[in-house]
Design a binder for these strands. Structure first.
Lengths: 209, 209
DNA sequence: AGCGCTCTTGACCATTTGATCAAGAATTAA
DNA sequence: TTAATTCTTGATCAAATGGTCAAGAGCGCT
C-alpha cells in the first residue's frame, strides 16, 4: 500500500535501492526526533532526494513511519526466538542477554524508535504488541516455567524476568545520553554492563539447594 | 524569565494558581505526545484557558516545557539522596527500589516526560545530566563502593547496578503499554515486579562467603 | 533509434501552529 | 467608588509542513 502502484507488479531495481535509502534515512530521522518531530523534508534531504520524489515511493509520512517500524520489529524479536528449551538455562539466558545487548550497541536507533513508539502509547503497533509479541513472550515464559518445574533454576516470575532483561539491555541504547553523561563518552561500558547484567540475572536464577 | 513581567515582583494569587494549572496540563500533554507532538492549543484547552492567556504566563512553548521538566527533575532524584551509608546495604537498596517503583506507579507521566527527553538526546537538560545528576550518581557509587570494601555486599560495578535499578523500575512506567499488552490491564503487576526486582538485585549483591 | 513506462522535481496549495496585538473584563489597593 | 494594574481572549499573522501536480528527464525493451 505504501509502494507506488505501477503497472508492473515486480519491484524495479531503482525502486529497491531508493526504498532502502529512504527507510535508512527515515530510521535516522525518526529515531532522533520522533514521529511528529520529524519532517518529510528532513528525511528527503537525508535520503538525498526531493520531497516529491520521496513521496513518490511512500505516499504519506505515516507510510514511511510504519514501513521503517515494521522493518525494525522483525529483527527486534529474533533473539528471543532462539531460546532452546532443552539447553542449559543459565547459558541460554546469558546468550539471550548478549544478543539483546549487541542490538543495543549496534543498532541503538532502532531501539530508540521502538522506545519512542512505546512511550507514546504504541499508536502504530498496538496490534503487534497484543499479537506476535505477546505470543512470543507467552511461549518464552512457558519455557522458563518448565525450567523452574524441573528445578533447573530458582522459582521466579518469568514475565518480570523477561521485562527486566529487556529493560536493562535497552536502557543502554535508549538512555545512551544519560549513561554517557555519567560514565563518559567511552563506549567500553557496554562490555561492563553486559557482565553486570548477566551476573545479576544468573545469581537470581541459581537454584536454591 | 518564563513568568510575566509585571511591575510587582511578587507573584499574584491568580498567577500562582494558573501557573500550577498550566504546568499540570503541560505534563499531561507533553508526556503523551512529546515536545514537538504537543501544541500550545492542546495545553491551553486542557488547562481550560485561551491560548493567548496561557502565553501570558509562559511566553513561549519552550518555556512551558522547561518549566514542567524542571519541576519533574527535582523529585526525580530525591529517592537516591536518601541512601544511608551506615544503613544495612540490602535493606537500603530495597528501600530505594521501592521508592523508584512507587514513582513509576504513581507518576508515570513524569517518568515518560523524562524518558522522552532522554531518548531525543536531552536537548533541554544536558546540563542537569552532566551536573547535579552525575554528582549524585558518583556520590551513590561511592557509598556502594564502601559497602563492597567492607565486605557487606558482593563486588559489583556500582554504576551499572544503579543503571539496572533505574532501567527495571522505570520500565513499568515508560513501557506501560507493552507491559499491559502482555500481562493485561490489571495493575497488580507492580507489586509482582517489585518483588522480582528486589529479589534479583539482592541475590546479586549477597556477599560471597 | 524509438517508444512507453518509470523516475524526478520546481512550483504551488491548504492546513496547522507558535506567537502577537489591541481591546475589553476582572481584580486590587486607595 | 475609582483608578491603576492584572488578567483574558477574538482576531490575526507569518512560518512551517504535509501533500499535489504537471512537465520534463531517464531507463529499459524491441
Amino acid at each position: 500500500m505504501a509502494e507506488p502502484q505501477p503497472k508492473t507488479q515486480t519491484k524495479t531495481r531503482i525502486q529497491a535501492i531508493n526504498e532502502d535509502i529512504i527507510l535508512s534515512a527515515a530510521l535516522e530521522v525518526f529515531s532522533a526526533f520522533g514521529y511528529r518531530g520529524s519532517t518529510v523534508d528532513q528525511i528527503a534531504e537525508r535520503a538525498g532526494m526531493s520531497k516529491p520524489n520521496l513521496l513518490y515511493y511512500f505516499h504519506r509520512k505515516d507510510d514511511i513511519y510504519r514501513a521503517v517500524l515494521e522493518k525494525t520489529l522483525a529483527q527486534w524479536l529474533t533473539p528471543l526466538r532462539g531460546l532452546d528449551p532443552n539447553g542449559e538455562p543459565l547459558a541460554e539466558i546469558a546468550r539471550y542477554i548478549r544478543a539483546k545487548m549487541a542490538m543495543s550497541r549496534d543498532n541503538p536507533k532502532a531501539s530508540r524508535l521502538f522506545a519512542n513508539e512505546m512511550l507514546h502509547g504504541a499508536p502504530a503497533i498496538g496490534d503487534f504488541l497484543s499479537g506476535p509479541m505477546k505470543v512470543l513472550v507467552d511461549d518464552t515464559a512457558r519455557i522458563i516455567k518448565t525450567w523452574i518445574a524441573k528445578g533447573q533454576i530458582a522459582a521466579i516470575d518469568p514475565y518480570h524476568l523477561i521485562f527486566s532483561i529487556w529493560a536493562m539491555t535497552q536502557h543502554y541504547a535508549d538512555f545512551d545520553i544519560q549513561v554517557r553523561a555519567v560514565l563518559g563518552a567511552d563506549s567500553e561500558h557496554f562490555a561492563d554492563a553486559e557482565t553486570t547484567i548477566i551476573r545479576l540475572i544468573q545469581d537470581g536464577l541459581k537454584p536454591r539447594s
